[in-house]
Simulated scan of single mutants.
Amino acid sequence: MLKEFKDFIARGNVLDLAVGVIIGGAFTSIVNSLVENLINPLIGIFIGGIDFSDWVFKVGDATFKFGTFINSIITFLIIAFVVFLIVKFVNKLMPQKEIEAVVDPQIQLLTDIRDAVAPEKAETTEDDEAAAETEEEK
């Protein structure tokens, strides 16, 4: 069981996932700082610093802070848009790798045979049609 666990951990995709999670955590703090310290104040200038966090309603002893939820949704949309812009910018900087089409040798062989037989089949079909028309005339 220990060997199976070691094999599982040693797989490339598990290590790649671990690195992705770590880098994602660091990247999250950068994006959150960008949104909270730069973008939100900029938006606040244009919309007059609207803050929904004091919007609440009460039912009995329960207090529902739906304004804080609205603020969270707005923050999420801003963060998602910033991440979209960053990814779009990075994709323009990074050259795209061309993906080579992997062709199964059997499929290639069958395709070559089909292409080689196709002209003969077309001629045979024309001859058959001509013979059928001749027999119909009789």
Rank of each mutant, 00 (worst) to 15 (best):
18 A>T: 04
33 S>G: 14
94 M>E: 09
31 V>M: 04
104 D>Q: 11
126 E>I: 13
18 A>E: 07
84 F>A: 07
73 I>S: 01
76 F>V: 01
8 F>S: 12
90 V>D: 07
56 V>N: 13
79 I>C: 04
33 S>I: 03
1 M>P: 07
133 E>S: 10
80 A>F: 05
68 T>S: 10
119 P>M: 06
74 I>M: 07
65 K>R: 08
95 P>I: 02
117 V>Y: 07
56 V>A: 09
137 E>H: 13
2 L>A: 13
27 F>I: 05
35 V>F: 02
64 F>P: 01
60 G>N: 11
56 V>P: 02
92 K>T: 14
107 I>V: 15
102 V>S: 09
31 V>F: 04
20 G>F: 09
69 F>G: 10
62 A>S: 08
23 I>S: 01
44 G>C: 03
55 W>M: 10
64 F>Q: 01
80 A>G: 05
39 I>K: 03
52 F>C: 11
39 I>F: 09
125 T>A: 10
32 N>E: 12
20 G>Q: 14
111 T>R: 12
15 L>E: 14
17 L>F: 12
21 V>S: 04
64 F>V: 10
53 S>Q: 05
74 I>E: 09
121 K>D: 00
48 G>L: 06
100 E>F: 09
67 G>L: 08
64 F>W: 07
84 F>G: 03
67 G>I: 03
22 I>A: 06
61 D>R: 03
52 F>T: 13
44 G>R: 02
17 L>K: 05
98 E>G: 07
75 T>N: 13
